[in-house]
Amino acid sequence: MTQRATPGAELLEHTGPGHPTGPRRPVASPSATTRRVLGLDEVAERSLTRTTVDGALQRVGGPVGLISAAAPTTAFVITEAAAGLGPALIALLVTAVAACVVRLARREPAGAAAAGLVVAAVCAGVASVTGQARDFFLPAMVVPVLFVLAYTGSLLARRPLMGLIVNPLSGGPRTWRTHRGLRRLYTASTLVGLGLAGLTLLARVLLYLADQPAALVVVQVVSTTSFALHFAATVVLARRSADAPANAGAAH
């Protein structure tokens, strides 16, 4: 009777004189050992939360990118409170140029780095014309307004904006509107985006009317991060939904 080969027998190798020949056993990592002792399932991939956070940080350029984006506005607000509008405008422009240099040194797209300079210059121009520091934040209010209009229009047209933006980047099928899972995901994601844009716009208007520039800086950083998280989560979920056969099928 022929003896059946044991799994892994093909991995047998000699390790040298005096050493027995046998299968090489993989060394378990401490985390794998802990999970086995506790009776937990093996982790096949990173958690959704970790993947989403990593994707969001990558989208905003990581911690350095987030700091670089917030530095000009922060410098403007702090300097204005301490020395007035004139020095604040100088601090803003100097910090904006430094942030642009940092982004270029990190090999970020030149267009994005230049856009930061243009935005800083526009905001500085508005504040210098009106003579009020809070008017520095007026141009930024246009962004959530545009998002609210775009999200609302896409939902009314039954072409969820997040589907138009995310699906090509996530590698989803061109016929995603007939894919139940993807259609529902992009619709829900667009509704979430509409809510985020609406809340951001409301917060900016109220804080502008209350003349709270420091709080407006916080709103700017929080809104940027939240939109990045929202985008990254949608990409991750879209990839999983597109790969799930159970969710595929024509919409009825």
Rank of each mutant, 00 (worst) to 15 (best):
H230P: 01
E13P: 01
T34L: 15
L169P: 05
S29L: 06
G62E: 09
G195F: 02
G198Q: 03
A28W: 13
R177F: 00
V64P: 00
L40S: 12
A44P: 00
G116F: 06
A150S: 07
V129P: 02
A56C: 13
I67Y: 05
A140Q: 12
A127I: 12
V145I: 15
A99C: 11
V102K: 01
L182M: 00
G131S: 09
A233C: 03
V77W: 05
L185Y: 03
S47D: 10
A81Y: 12
P160F: 08
G61K: 03
L201M: 10
V235D: 02
R174K: 12
L164E: 13
G18Q: 13
L38G: 05
L156C: 06
L156R: 09
V64F: 07
T234L: 03
L48E: 07
F147I: 09
L164W: 09
A124L: 08
A96E: 01
P160A: 14
L149W: 06
L164D: 07
T6W: 13
H230N: 02
P26D: 01
H14R: 13
A238Y: 02
G55S: 08
R4N: 04
A91Q: 14
P20Y: 13
T152C: 02
G16S: 04
P30V: 07
D211G: 04
R204W: 13
L38D: 14
R183C: 05
A83E: 10
V219D: 01
F136P: 08
V94Y: 01
G131A: 09
A203Y: 02
V37W: 12
P87Q: 10
R106Q: 10
G22L: 10
L191V: 14
